[in-house]
Amino acid sequence: MGNIVWMASYPKSGNTWVRAFLHNYIADSETPSDINNLGDFFANESNASWYKPLVDNDLQQLDRKTICQLRAKVQQNIAASRRGTIMVKTHNFLGAYEDVPLHDMSITSGAISVVRNPLDVVLSLADHFGLDTDQAIEFMGSDNTGTPTDDNNVASVLASWSTHVESWTRDQSGATCVLRYEDLLDEPHTHFAKLTQFLGLPDDPKRLDRAIEHSSFSKLKNFEEQSGFVERSPNSSRFFRAGRKNQWSETLEPTQVQRLVDDHREIMSRFDYIPPANR
């Protein structure tokens, strides 16, 4: 068994929020942790800095398969970079690209999978990637979906929202902690405590209260407004948008809701995301 715990999610599903909570819980400070210092406790397996030493040419000149072939070495280097458990952010689905595994399971000890209603994901994702809503719906429904290599990150292989979520939540061994974004909003103490227990962190109610408060959406949004956020997309004016559930009901057209349900019915049903009118 390895020492990597994957912090996995489809983009715009709450990965950053969960990392901010854990950053505050681990730091256990009277003041909120700097969201631009998440790298103190978490690695990002797609960060270009891990890949540049392995190649002679510009990463952006490499095709997706070549990038994926570098991932095993990168992940081994990440695992070796720290003693003990290291939590590593990933947006790749749990599988292979052209027969090349996207995650080295030999150095993996577990995973945290954050799942969010795709009806809300599509709104944040459209803003993040500079798409209109219909383009974002198509993006989320394709198993060929991925992101390109840029100055900061190498290409990711996302697959569709359904394929991605199913891949990270199928484990029945107890090695994966599955968190619904909506549960974290509705009952933060219950579900963030589930996360700290999964990771074997100290059980401390006051520490939990403080970490939840320090990582509240309003605090994160204010921090970004004052200091910026390194993970903000150049396509968007801000990373932290609204942080609410059911935003879709105010924005999506009925035909758009139906398209998403048609594309993702099985997994949406499993996580109780299908609106009554579309059942």
Rank of each mutant, 00 (worst) to 15 (best):
residue 85 T to N: 11
residue 106 S to Q: 12
residue 44 N to R: 06
residue 98 E to W: 14
residue 125 L to E: 02
residue 257 V to W: 07
residue 229 F to A: 07
residue 207 R to I: 05
residue 127 D to N: 13
residue 13 S to G: 00
residue 223 F to L: 11
residue 116 R to S: 15
residue 80 A to I: 12
residue 180 R to L: 13
residue 140 M to N: 04
residue 55 V to Q: 14
residue 142 S to W: 02
residue 56 D to Y: 13
residue 147 T to F: 01
residue 47 N to Q: 10
residue 270 R to G: 03
residue 181 Y to F: 15
residue 18 V to F: 00
residue 260 L to H: 04
residue 203 D to I: 15
residue 251 T to D: 08
residue 17 W to V: 04
residue 59 L to C: 13
residue 221 K to P: 00
residue 173 S to T: 09
residue 159 A to K: 02
residue 202 P to F: 07
residue 166 E to R: 11
residue 100 V to S: 02
residue 206 K to Q: 13
residue 267 I to V: 13
residue 119 L to C: 02
residue 235 N to F: 14
residue 149 T to I: 10
residue 62 L to Y: 11
residue 232 R to C: 02
residue 61 Q to K: 15
residue 59 L to T: 01
residue 92 N to D: 07
residue 107 I to G: 03
residue 264 H to Y: 04
residue 118 P to L: 08
residue 26 I to Y: 08
residue 24 N to V: 14
residue 256 Q to P: 00
residue 19 R to C: 11
residue 179 L to E: 08
residue 31 T to Q: 12
residue 58 D to Q: 12
residue 97 Y to R: 01
residue 25 Y to W: 09
residue 1 M to Q: 13
residue 76 Q to E: 14
residue 261 V to C: 07
residue 8 A to Y: 00
residue 269 S to V: 03
residue 47 N to L: 10
residue 79 A to T: 04
residue 240 F to S: 06
residue 161 W to G: 06
residue 192 F to N: 00
residue 10 Y to M: 06
residue 168 W to V: 01
residue 244 R to P: 05
residue 116 R to M: 08
residue 80 A to G: 10
residue 127 D to A: 14
residue 199 L to Y: 04
residue 211 A to H: 03
residue 223 F to Y: 14
residue 154 V to S: 06
residue 48 A to V: 12
residue 61 Q to I: 10
residue 176 T to K: 03
residue 67 I to S: 04
residue 33 S to F: 07
residue 228 G to K: 12
residue 132 D to V: 12
residue 192 F to L: 06
residue 122 V to Y: 03
